[in-house]
């Protein structure tokens, strides 16, 4: 054996901690900003108001659920534009099935059947997206944009162009009641989020999702079935949208095709603000959580301090652009390859 080969230390370290911390820092700064503003202008506390915190929690649920599925898809190097209307589709299906089943098998049975059927139905657009992208090599942007239209039309057709009201006690409980001061809908979402964190951070499925986004060829050569993985990822994304639709039905006592219409961009924004790259290969569940919270705090906070609601769009838009800029600058400075 020859003498040990001297190899220089990687220098990526310093930036890494800051990157994961910057979204948290930004969220804290936002909360401080709203606290100061509302004390100065309105003479009330923003932060230490339980109702505000509950509202932000509930407000975060729907875009967060879409963003969680989107996180997996974006890490793998794809994108899912169909989640908003998959959510509406699931909401309409849940409402219809529960209304049909409740007189026959009672509220509990109708809740279980309605939830399962809505989830199964929501998996369909994801399965088709996945097959189009993995088998027929359609670019994700186009394939899921097509599905955006199909799910939208189908949802409105199923709903007959209106909202379907539904009154199912278990679902309404989850959508509107609290357990120990915490909205049940938030508890359900947190439990689901922890499950997804485990899936992404601690299992082969998660590891292969990162590998697929980092270098598809590497994943293929490592023997990973990337087609099957791709299909699973889009199905997962649409199941998240489906869950979001079901919870929507519980929260608003109605299923509506347009339930998720404004949420698509928020879901992508949450993932990006949370530190994921749109080129794939990076992102985390907790990053996305922070991203979704940042958006919700901006939206809710601006309303709370009486700023015209249209400023929300401006503020969220600026945050998206800044977070992408920060990410790219950081990559140039610290994370780039240190070739000779």
């Amino acid at each position: 054996m020859s003498a040990p080969l001297a190899i220089e230390a990687p220098r990526a370290r310093a930036g890494a901690w800051l990157v994961s911390a910057r979204a948290w820092l930004f969220l804290i700064l936002l909360l401080i900003f709203f606290e100061i503003w509302s004390r100065a202008a309105l003479h009330v506390t923003f932060l230490f108001n339980g109702f505000n915190m509950q509202s932000i929690g509930v407000f975060t649920v729907q875009p967060l659920l879409l963003a969680l599925g989107q996180t997996f898809v974006i890490i793998s190097g794809g994108i899912d534009l169909s989640v908003g209307f998959t959510m509406g589709f699931a909401a309409v299906v849940a409402a219809h099935v529960i209304n049909a089943a409740q007189p026959e098998i009672g509220p509990a049975g109708a809740f279980v059947v309605g939830t399962l059927v809505a989830l199964a139905a929501s998996a369909v657009p994801g399965l088709i997206n996945g097959l189009l992208i993995a088998r027929l090599r359609i670019p994700p942007f186009i394939g899921t944009l097509g599905m955006f239209g199909v799910a939208r039309g189908t949802a409105f057709l199923l709903a007959g162009g209106t909202t379907i009201s539904v009154n199912n006690p278990p679902l309404v409980f989850i959508g509107t009641q609290e357990v120990g001061g915490i909205p049940a809908i938030v508890i359900v979402t947190v439990a689901f989020l922890l499950g997804l964190h485990y899936l992404l951070a601690q299992t082969r499925f998660g590891q292969y999702t990162y590998a697929l986004g980092g270098n598809r060829q590497a994943a293929v050569r490592a023997g990973i079935d990337v087609r099957r993985l791709t299909v699973s990822l889009y199905v997962l994304s649409s199941l998240c949208a489906g869950l979001s639709g079901i919870l929507y039905t519980g929260r608003f006592l109605a299923g509506a095709a347009q339930a998720g219409e404004p949420l698509l961009l928020d879901s992508i924004a949450a993932v990006v603000i949370g530190g994921a790259s749109l080129f794939g290969g990076s992102g985390t569940v907790f990053g996305t959580l922070i991203g979704a919270l940042i958006i919700a705090v901006i939206q809710y906070g601006l309303v709370f301090i009486d700023v015209e609601p249209f400023w929300q769009f401006v503020a969220v838009g600026i945050v998206i652009i800044i977070s992408v800029l920060v990410d790219q600058t950081q990559k140039r400075l610290g994370g780039g390859r240190q070739d000779e």
Partner: peptide
């Protein structure tokens, strides 16, 4: 292989070409 890296928990993107080959 007589290769020592200072860290093994960083993305290989941050390694040099020779380190990556290693």
């Amino acid at each position: 292989l007589d290769i020592q890296l200072h860290r093994y928990d960083v993305p290989v993107r941050t390694l040099s070409g020779g380190q990556r080959q290693a």
